[in-house]
Simulated scan of single mutants.
Amino acid sequence: FLSAMKKLTPYAIKSGWFVTDPIAKLKRPKMSPAVPHSLTESDVLSLLDAPDVDTPIGLRDRAMLEVLYATGLRVTELVRLQYDQVSLAQGLVRVVGKGDKERLVPLGEEAIEWLSRYMKSGRPVLSERQSGWVFITQRGTLLTRQAFWYRIRTYAEQAQINSHLSPHTLRHAFATHLLNHGADLRVLQMLLGHSDLSTTQIYTQVAKERLQQMHATFHPRG
């Protein structure tokens, strides 16, 4: 409506309908940020199980998916992960995020196990070239964000996941599922590397909708 009025007003003033612009001081309403699409926990498990872990590439991809879901990393942060950022002994990843801000994120048992298997059995087979990158191609080069996004979509098709997907789908799932299980919003903010809590609060709406769906499905009077 406001956009239409702004286009009409110059003509109205020129035609003598108004002396001054009647909407000059009106401000555009703030748009609510888009609610991120997430996956159900069962969909995530299906996606994690999709790679063929009997191959070095499949083992790499399984490790990447596990780390992505366990930590909520951005895809760019994941593909650029280096050895000196990972501590399997402590179960932590040191992430260099936007604005070169560092944060420590726990890996979790499953991610540690798959990452360890990949480092021992998958990565050496992919390439003997020495580099600091954790996740590499068969040529020993850095895996790109676009290439990994393509593989996510391929695995989603294999797992027959029909939900909307984006490069940040598992990051959104990480955040939503943590909130569904009672995680503190401030802690989630630190794990995601958000500088502003309002950015993290978007996920409360997703979690709320999920809880409402569960209530409607399972409550005897839902």
Results as ranks from 00 to 15, higher is better:
residue 216 A to E: 15
residue 27 K to S: 06
residue 150 Y to M: 13
residue 91 G to S: 04
residue 123 R to W: 06
residue 77 E to Q: 11
residue 222 G to N: 09
residue 126 L to H: 10
residue 97 G to C: 01
residue 24 A to E: 13
residue 159 A to G: 02
residue 121 S to F: 14
residue 176 T to A: 01
residue 151 R to T: 15
residue 192 L to P: 05
residue 177 H to E: 01
residue 179 L to H: 03
residue 5 M to S: 00
residue 197 L to R: 00
residue 121 S to I: 07
residue 45 L to T: 07
residue 168 H to Q: 08
residue 170 L to I: 13
residue 198 S to M: 05
residue 172 H to L: 06
residue 110 E to P: 11
residue 129 R to Q: 14
residue 60 R to N: 12
residue 204 T to I: 10
residue 216 A to G: 14
residue 186 R to P: 03
residue 184 D to N: 09
residue 139 R to N: 13
residue 165 L to G: 11
residue 99 G to V: 00
residue 49 D to C: 01
residue 137 T to R: 04
residue 188 L to P: 00
residue 24 A to T: 03
residue 191 L to E: 07
residue 68 L to G: 05
residue 208 K to I: 02
residue 129 R to I: 08
residue 212 Q to A: 15
residue 34 A to P: 00
residue 113 E to I: 12
residue 217 T to S: 14
residue 32 S to V: 00
residue 149 W to M: 14
residue 105 V to G: 09
residue 122 G to S: 12
residue 60 R to D: 08
residue 198 S to V: 11
residue 143 L to T: 15
residue 104 L to H: 10
residue 162 N to M: 14
residue 3 S to E: 04
residue 157 E to C: 02
residue 89 A to K: 13
residue 41 E to Y: 01
residue 167 P to C: 07
residue 175 A to N: 02
residue 46 S to E: 06
residue 151 R to N: 10
residue 55 T to A: 04
residue 135 F to T: 08
residue 99 G to A: 02
residue 164 H to C: 05
residue 151 R to V: 15
residue 10 P to C: 07
residue 93 V to H: 12
residue 216 A to M: 09
residue 68 L to P: 08
residue 18 F to R: 05
residue 40 T to H: 03
residue 129 R to D: 02
residue 127 S to C: 11
residue 150 Y to V: 09
residue 79 V to R: 12
residue 40 T to L: 13
residue 172 H to F: 06
residue 157 E to R: 15
residue 22 P to M: 06
residue 218 F to E: 13
residue 112 I to C: 15
